[in-house]
Simulated assay, not measured.
Amino acid sequence: MDDSEVATKTETAYRTLRQEILETRLQPGAPLKLGALRDAYGIGWTPLREALSRLEAEHLVISSANKGYTVAPVSMAELSDLTNARRLVELPMLAESIANGDEEWETQLVAAHFRLSRCKPPVENPEELVISDWEERHEAFHHALLAASKSQWLMRFYVQIKDQLRRHHRILAITPGLAASKGPEWRDSAAFHSLRDALAIEPHTELMNAALDHDVDKAVALLGAHIELTKQVFSVADFSKPH
């Protein structure tokens, strides 16, 4: 096997495992046994080890001398830290994006909002396809908001933070105590109402309109409130213990 073939297999292994972790099919805290991963995904030893090393560098995987590799855990403390980091990165990016935004940027933002508006939030139907579809459209909307920002480094930080937050959001959507019941008790709970408010299209519409009006102060305030609401969803859910 030549070097290019090894590199291709490593990239495939990396992308496969990364997607499985981000979409929490490999659960936070789960052990990553090399033999089991090789059998489950058809990945060779060398590409597997190199892929896990890359994922460890991204803090999606952790390793220890005694336990080997495990999926990085999620926790309320981690979510709070990520939320603060998101504010520090995303709010200045939004202000810069609005300042630089032209007609093409406005057009793309409106299109992304329309696609999001045509997708039902997964608050009452946390099935895999529903969650994935909504995530893709929601991320596209937020990316469209920031697309006119010129800072490549801030965009890199934004993407890294977004991926880590995605795992936390996924855990909330699929936690059995929240998602599995879907009955009167779940719909009457504070967690349900907070989650519904966080995923609703109306705050996104208000945010889009402020951006299109080039009202930087209002848009930044709305985005800041939207970011905090996501953290509040976890605070009212049973998320006090690491997952």
Rank of each mutant, 00 (worst) to 15 (best):
V6S: 15
A7H: 10
T10P: 06
R18E: 02
R25E: 00
L32G: 06
G35C: 01
G35A: 07
A36K: 13
G42F: 10
G44M: 04
W45Q: 15
T46H: 11
L48Y: 10
R49P: 01
S53N: 11
E58Q: 12
E58C: 03
V61Y: 01
I62S: 11
I62R: 13
S64N: 11
S64K: 03
S64L: 07
A65S: 12
K67T: 09
T70E: 05
T70A: 12
V71M: 00
S75C: 12
S75P: 05
M76F: 05
S80Y: 04
L82C: 02
L88R: 11
E90Q: 15
L91N: 09
M93E: 02
A95V: 02
E96H: 06
I98L: 12
G101R: 15
D102H: 14
V110T: 10
A112L: 01
H113N: 05
F114K: 13
L116T: 08
S117E: 15
C119Y: 07
E128V: 01
E128D: 15
L129G: 07
V130P: 01
I131L: 00
I131E: 00
S132N: 11
D133W: 06
F141P: 06
M155C: 05
D163F: 02
H168K: 08
A173T: 00
T175K: 10
P176H: 03
G177Q: 13
A180R: 13
A180T: 11
A180C: 10
G183P: 04
P184Q: 09
P184F: 07
E185P: 00
E185I: 03
A190D: 15
S194K: 15
R196F: 03
D197N: 08
D197W: 01
A210K: 09
D213Q: 13
D215I: 01
D215E: 06
D217W: 02
K218M: 06
K218G: 09
L222I: 00
Q232G: 09
Q232N: 14
Q232A: 11
